[in-house]
Design a protein around this nucleic acid. Sequence first.
DNA 1: GTGGTCTAGACCACA
DNA 2: GTGGTCTAGACCACA
Lengths: 133, 133, 133, 133
Amino acid sequence: MLSLDYKDKRPIYEQIAEKLKELMLLGAFPENTRLPGVRSLAVELAINPNTVQRAYAQLEREGYIYSVKGKGNFVAQSGKLKELKLAEITDRLLDTVDHAKKLGMSDEEIIKLIRQRAGGDICDNSKRIDEEI
Amino acid sequence: MLSLDYKDKRPIYEQIAEKLKELMLLGAFPENTRLPGVRSLAVELAINPNTVQRAYAQLEREGYIYSVKGKGNFVAQSGKLKELKLAEITDRLLDTVDHAKKLGMSDEEIIKLIRQRAGGDICDNSKRIDEEI
Amino acid sequence: MLSLDYKDKRPIYEQIAEKLKELMLLGAFPENTRLPGVRSLAVELAINPNTVQRAYAQLEREGYIYSVKGKGNFVAQSGKLKELKLAEITDRLLDTVDHAKKLGMSDEEIIKLIRQRAGGDICDNSKRIDEEI
Amino acid sequence: MLSLDYKDKRPIYEQIAEKLKELMLLGAFPENTRLPGVRSLAVELAINPNTVQRAYAQLEREGYIYSVKGKGNFVAQSGKLKELKLAEITDRLLDTVDHAKKLGMSDEEIIKLIRQRAGGDICDNSKRIDEEI
DNA sequence: GTGGTCTAGACCACA
DNA sequence: GTGGTCTAGACCACA
């Protein structure tokens, strides 16, 4: 279910959190689904339970899951997840765009780069772009 | 000239390297300018010379500067810097775009988000695509 | 397991890296084998842990090993090692051949020298070319 | 006449020695030619006279030049130079070949690599090579 | 325990 | 003076 990459520089607990986050944001679990228990996941991944616990703690702190004492950890409401997903993506986009701009790149140059990378050239029927800015 | 953030998770040497990188990529120094000496920068930042040394070593490995024994550390050719700048930006863009796509977003949705953030909304003749989020 | 040469001009960390590189390229370790810990190797070689750390850091940068925080340093995939080995050898060959050519030697003269050194003399139907030296 | 590369990791005095060596080995100077004076070469290269002196000292130690007190430094006999040239090249070749062999490569594989690099394939009219070894 | 970072202080080669 | 290397010793995050 989850695969770890020990060559990855990020700590194991963060990789687990990240992977679970992705699965939840992609809608892989219905809301309120119970996640695998700390111990069973630890066994499955052949790692220390503390490490799994740490991953779950982080996910809870960020609002992706909620824990019920003695019951387990559960996936948050799907409304909440959608909100987190949008925030996650826009935050990262903003960061990257800000960085590119700080180095002197314009919005249109950035978009051009994305288009080149994507291979497609969908919006090329628009009028000369720069005159509108 | 440089400021350190001790709350930052990243190691000091990396912060220094990062900041200097930015300055160089922005063209803040003419090529072949001598950077502050290992010891003098250490005094200025109130840190150990070894830490500065480490930052400089990393910058040299990455091609941003070259060091001359007994003379100092010098900014690389501006041609080389431009090349590194483009690589740096596109790498980061790719990462972000990949991440957004992994979460189920299309190229056009990504571009739309950037446009919204930028304030402009040029390519709005495309169909509505945001309903999915 | 490793021996240091203090008469050698090269820094200790580089000697260590070099020796380990050789062992790995020769296939002395299965892939993913754990290398000796930073501290234990330091004790064994009677040097400072930082120096070992530096050697390991360089090997990691060059792709020979990967390090896992809290676990240790591990030998890279043997596929990766083979690739590095070929690169290492051809780089060095190129350098040497370039140097010999810069001093006015032809490819065939170079090959002849290697054959002489190797003991064999297979391609001796070529014209005499050594008169120039 | 001589150009320095400050990005080169080797010390300046070694670069000078190397360049002069090359010129002499290529026969650029008649034997017993007087080399430029320490001070004048230092001025020309905009470096410290000590550095030039060091280069000359090394060349003398290796037999490429001889110095006459109060007169200057002179190119060695061309017989001596030829001998040094051959030694220089074969030494380096031996080193490289030994290294490649230590990593498990055969003489013929090495020669093949050189041929590939050279682009030419001169000796291919010989019979199957491996059966002769 | 293990690697990663940092400090304080030293010595060396080079310029 | 300047960068490069090394030591001794400390602290932290992670497992």
